[in-house]
């Protein structure tokens, strides 16, 4: 049934925009609006009128704008006064650059680690981790003239270590990005 589908879609979209609320709060909002819509449809049908979902939904406005009103107290305490919207925009910018910065940094580092593991497998003598300056610094390097093997810290164990670190970092980056994205999404999808 097309009407049902339209209502469903509206409520689903609304729920997505309500992501900032606790699940219980969001559910409460959806439940009340759902109850209102179906109540109204039943009443109209009982009165022999045509119940048009689109007209009813129009009264609620765009899901995003409706959700914003429910979420406003969480994001700002109160909507910012006129002229202060620039601050909001800066906050958005920071969140967006944080998101992309995090993505680039996390994935680059993780790919480097995986690449290191691969390189160690292909040219074991030229790639490794060495302790320098009497253990005060650590060097990861590709060398034309390898250090004596006994000074190398990990040897072939570098391969599994780098793979595990690389994968773990990739997983961590994705988790952090998911959280950041959620916040980005509710602010300006």
């Amino acid at each position: 049934m097309e009407q049902q589908q339209m209502i469903h879609q509206y409520l689903n979209t609304l729920q997505r925009y309500l992501a900032r609320l606790s699940p219980a709060e969001a559910k409460e909002v959806i439940r009340e609006i759902e109850s209102h819509i179906f109540d109204l449809i039943e009443q109209r049908e009982a009165a022999g009128q045509q119940a048009d979902a689109a007209t009813i939904l129009q009264g609620f406005g765009e899901p995003r704008q409706l959700a914003e009103q429910y979420v406003a107290h969480m994001t700002d305490g109160a909507p910012p006064p006129l002229g202060f919207r620039a601050i909001q925009r800066v906050k958005h910018g920071v969140t967006a650059s944080l998101y992309y910065g995090m993505a680039v940094f996390g994935f680059m580092t993780s790919f480097c680690l995986l690449f290191l593991a691969g390189a160690k497998l292909i040219t074991p003598d030229a790639v490794g981790v060495w302790a320098m300056s009497e253990g005060n610094s650590l060097t990861i390097a590709f060398l034309a003239e390898p250090f004596p093997p006994e000074q190398e810290l990990l040897g072939m164990a570098l391969v599994p270590v780098a793979i595990v670190l690389g994968l773990a970092l990739m997983w961590l980056t994705r988790r952090v990005l998911a959280v950041l994205k959620n916040h980005l999404y509710t602010r300006h999808p």
Binding site: E32, G59, F60, Y70, H73
Partner: peptide, 15 residues
């Protein structure tokens, strides 16, 4: 007023 004005306002007054 419309639904879209009423319900969020009820939510605020309840809060």
């Amino acid at each position: 007023i419309t639904e879209g004005t009423l319900y969020p306002l009820l939510d605020r007054l309840k809060r």
